[in-house]
C-alpha cells in the first residue's frame, strides 16, 4: 500500500471505532481547531502536552487554544524533569496532544509516555483532540515495534476510538472512564 492508501485505511478503521477524523491542510487548521474547541463545554480549560510537538508547533496550537478563550494547563519543567497538577488536568474539558504514529490496520493512535508528553490529557478530559502528520501513519503494531526496536516507553497506549461500555443492557455508551469524543486532525499537504 502507498501512503494515501494507508491513510485512507486508517481513516476508515478509526471512524468505525468512533473517532472523528479530519484531514486538514495547515492553513485551515486554526479555523477547524477553533470550531471544535467552540463546541466543547465548560469549564474553558485545556490540558496540553509540553513536549513531543514538531518544532514551534506547540506555540501556534497554544495560541489558537488561548484565543478560543481557554486557559491552558501543561506539565511544568523543573530541574528534575516534568511535574503536573493532576487535579488541574482533571478539571479540563479538552486535552490536546501531538501523536507521532497511528496505525492503519486498527485505526489506533499510538500514545507513548515521555518527559512532558502529558498522557493524562488524552485520558481525563471528556474531549480528546489529537494532531498528527500524515507521514506518521503506519500499517500495524508490528511495523511500529520494528521501528522502535525494544526501546519501549514506560507506558504505550493504543487508543482506538472513545472510551466505551456495553455493560448496562448491552447498550453502547461513550465516555465511561476516558474521553467520550476523540477528534483526530491529520495534517496533509
Amino acid at each position: 500500500m502507498n501512503r494515501p492508501q494507508i491513510v485512507e485505511r486508517y481513516i476508515r478503521m478509526a471512524r468505525i471505532a468512533g473517532t472523528v477524523v479530519e484531514c486538514v491542510c495547515q492553513p485551515d487548521l486554526p479555523l477547524r481547531l477553533a470550531e471544535v474547541l467552540g463546541q466543547a463545554g465548560e469549564p474553558k480549560i485545556a490540558a496540553m502536552s509540553a513536549t513531543g510537538w514538531p518544532e514551534g508547533f506547540r506555540q501556534s496550537i497554544e495560541a489558537i487554544v488561548v484565543s478560543s478563550g481557554f486557559e491552558v494547563r501543561m506539565p511544568c519543567k523543573d530541574p528534575g524533569g516534568y511535574t503536573w497538577d493532576i487535579g488541574g488536568v482533571e478539571a479540563a474539558s479538552v486535552g490536546l496532544v501531538w501523536c507521532e504514529h497511528f496505525l492503519a490496520d486498527t485505526g489506533s493512535l499510538v500514545l507513548a509516555t515521555g518527559q512532558g508528553r502529558g498522557g493524562l490529557s488524552t485520558l481525563l478530559p471528556p474531549i480528546s483532540i489529537v494532531l498528527s502528520d500524515a507521514t506518521g501513519c503506519i500499517e500495524g503494531l508490528a511495523d511500529y515495534f520494528q521501528q522502535i526496536g525494544q526501546r519501549l516507553p514506560s507506558r504505550l497506549t493504543l487508543a482506538t476510538g472513545p472510551s466505551c461500555t456495553g455493560d448496562i443492557e448491552a447498550t453502547m455508551t461513550r465516555g465511561v472512564h476516558g474521553p467520550q469524543k476523540v477528534v483526530h486532525f491529520i495534517l496533509c499537504d
Binding site: L158, T160, P162
Partner: peptide, 9 residues
Amino acid sequence: AISSYVTII
C-alpha cells in the same frame, strides 16, 4: 479489530 485501549507497560 482491537479494543479501545491496549495499555503496554
